[in-house]
Nucleic acid binder design. Structure first.
Length: 290
DNA sequence: TAGTTGCCTTCGAG
DNA sequence: ACTCGAAGGCAAC
């Protein structure tokens, strides 16, 4: 299937897949191969044409966030020169709509890890506990179904390189397996309620919850704060906070819970209903050296 | 080459 | 309530 991408509603496949929101896409030749839910599909983009194969167009459009009106998003979040620069540089970066289950486990694994290491862990988990799918002559692995991780032994999980996250993954998988987590319900709940619910799961703090809400549960106002966003705020948005607070932030290695909430709340109120979009542009801009 | 630093943080103890 | 340190291991420098 081919989709026309015109400049008034841009899409940039490469940036969207490389900016660190999803961890299981790989480029082979000129095609990007991905596994979302239990489908393997591939995509490539040349100038104004986006090609997608092996999946229906409704799913692909939703997954790639193509239903978001980016001109509207940009006009809402472009509040200052710095975010404008980030938006211009990475125009067409979109928030993916990932599978909530995979997203949940991914961000439990993501704590205190860099992106390369996260990819490595999730690849191990998928290879060991997922199903093998052959496509275009390559082997892919679906993300493990809930039951597979709920049944997994601590030792098997440990061998995937999860470290201290092992028990969080197992406990969370068991909680989901006992159907104590309803993702469709979370999607309908408001931001604060859904966040509280997610944070009741072991291994899910405020940062992980914000990522899961943004990347898989349609909460586009969610504003995850990691070390890069904290850096961006210190450099470019310090004037929005008190002198003492900024001084404290510069000294501290890690964020206290209340400090996290203060920064995240700033993002949500300053950038508005699409704060999550602003966050991804700032994150990518800061990480790639601006 | 080998060592160090840092990583899209969370949890639990004090 | 709030601070502080520990927790795999990979990868970039």
């Amino acid at each position: 299937m081919k989709i026309k991408v015109d400049p008034s509603n841009p899409f940039n496949l490469e940036v969207t897949l490389c900016c660190g929101q999803a961890f299981r896409w790989e480029k082979k030749g000129e095609w990007w191969y991905g596994v979302a839910s239990d489908r393997v599909f591939k995509s490539r983009q040349t100038s104004g044409i986006l090609e997608i194969e092996n999946v229906d167009s409704d799913f692909a459009k939703r997954y790639f966030g193509l239903n978001d009106e980016l001109d509207n998003v940009y006009s809402r979040i472009c509040k200052d020169r710095y975010i404008k620069r980030a938006v211009e540089m990475f125009s067409g970066l979109r928030i993916l709509r990932q599978d909530p289950w995979e997203c949940l486990i991914s961000y439990i694994c993501a704590t205190y890890k860099n992106i390369a290491a996260i990819k490595h862990m999730l690849f191990n988990v998928s290879r060991r506990f997922g199903d093998k799918v052959r496509f275009d002559g390559f082997d892919f692995y679906t993300f493990p179904p809930v039951e597979n991780l709920a049944r997994a032994s601590l030792n098997d999980l440990l061998q995937c390189g999860l470290g201290y996250r092992t028990k969080y993954v197992q406990e969370t998988a068991r909680t989901v397996a006992e159907s104590h987590v309803d993702f469709d319900h979370l999607r309908k709940m408001d931001y604060k309620e859904a966040k509280r619910e997610l944070m009741s799961l072991p291994g899910v703090g405020p940062k992980a919850a914000d990522c899961i809400l943004l990347f898989s549960l349609e909460k586009l106002q969610s504003f995850p704060v990691d070390v890069w966003i904290r850096r961006a705020i210190l450099r470019h948005y310090a004037a929005h906070f008190s002198r003492e607070f900024i001084a404290r932030l510069r000294e501290k290695e890690s964020l206290a819970g209340s400090d996290y909430e203060k920064l995240s709340m700033f993002g949500r109120t300053y950038f508005g209903e699409f704060a999550g979009y602003a966050q991804e542009y700032l994150f990518h801009y800061e990480r790639t050296g601006g």
